[in-house]
């Protein structure tokens, strides 16, 4: 990537001003929902009013967050705390497993190609784009036959399987840029396929692992369709399913819904803030270079 060099030549000052105006306006558009999310969450119950939703809170209060997290026994709705940890228990192992599997596949498909391996790769890749509606009906039947329906391990399994295409793609692209001589050298030293992976490929795979893990974590955390189909039981629901439920419930005030939305968004937003660089790399996974 070329660094941004300010190019001011031949520019009229008002044009520059205009571009800033457009950028600031755009920034306001992107920040608007976050503004509402945050200020609503910080208002006390007395101050929450749909007809004054844009006003700043007069005093800081975390009531809404507490209620969204713990729920309310008197009103009879569950908080999101349990579901938050469900999502963690889901996303972390699923991410690690996906990354491991993708790394293996990418390694084989780039460095140990065999006849037909490219076509095989294309067939794998298509799995990334299918509308999951086209597999839901048999998915429920099969998962229940093998005893994985309705459980977090079942959902982990589903995410790992449908994560194979994307993780394989990213790792294969990454390993493609690793010189073949490295592998050859390993062979000459008498290392086998796993030995070469362990001693040569794995140690230099960290950037690809970072990208894959961020992507898988984000998409698994944010998934709704598999969650609502595979784990609808309240005790095992991931947070997106629980949030959608909370937000559709008449007894839950809208400020509590907003606070819940922020809670559900927090982990991926933090990940984005801390590791935003890798996020960009994930976007440009195709041209990922060491």
């Amino acid at each position: 990537m070329r660094a941004a060099v300010p190019r001011t030549r031949g520019e009229v000052p008002w044009l520059r001003l205009a571009s800033y105006a457009v950028l600031v306006a755009a920034a306001l558009f992107y920040l608007l929902p976050i503004y509402v999310l945050v200020i609503t969450g910080m208002k006390s119950f007395a101050e929450v009013n749909l007809y004054r939703m844009w006003d700043l809170p007069s005093r800081f209060s975390l009531d809404s967050f507490v209620k969204a997290w713990l729920g309310s026994a008197t009103q009879g709705f569950r908080g999101l705390s349990n579901n938050f940890w469900n999502s963690v228990r889901l996303a972390v192992p699923a991410t690690l497993l996906s990354a491991a599997l993708g790394s293996m596949n990418g390694y084989v498909l780039s460095k140990w190609r065999f006849r037909g391996s490219d076509s095989l790769f294309a067939l794998l890749l298509f799995g990334m784009f299918i509308p999951y509606q086209s597999i839901l009906i048999p998915l429920v039947q099969v998962l229940s036959r093998i005893g994985l329906y309705g459980s977090i391990p079942g959902l982990i399994f589903v995410h790992v399987v449908y994560g194979i295409p994307i993780t394989t793609l990213i790792f294969r692209n990454y390993y493609a840029t690793v010189p073949g001589e490295l592998v050859e050298a390993g062979k000459i030293d008498g290392a086998g396929i796993l030995g070469i992976y362990r001693s040569i490929m794995f140690p230099i795979s960290m950037p690809a692992f970072a990208v894959v893990m961020i992507w898988q974590f984000t998409s698994i955390w944010n998934d709704f369709l598999f969650g609502v189909i595979v784990t609808p039981r309240p005790a095992v629901q991931p947070i997106t399913v629980a949030l959608n439920n909370l937000a559709g419930s008449y007894i839950v005030e809208w400020n509590v819904q907003m606070a819940g939305a922020l809670l559900a968004a927090l982990p991926t937003m933090l990940l984005y803030i801390v590791l935003g660089r890798y996020f960009m790399r994930g976007l440009l996974a195709g041209s990922l270079k060491a």
């Binding site: 709704f224 997106t240 949030l243 959608n244 819904q257 939305a261 559900a264 991926t268 990940l271 984005y272």
Partner: peptide, 18 residues
């Protein structure tokens, strides 16, 4: 400009509904 991408469609839906 990029951060909304980190959010779930569910979160986006809840916020924009209001």
């Amino acid at each position: 400009f990029l951060f909304p991408l980190a959010l779930s469609f569910i979160v986006t839906g809840v916020v924009w509904r209001w």
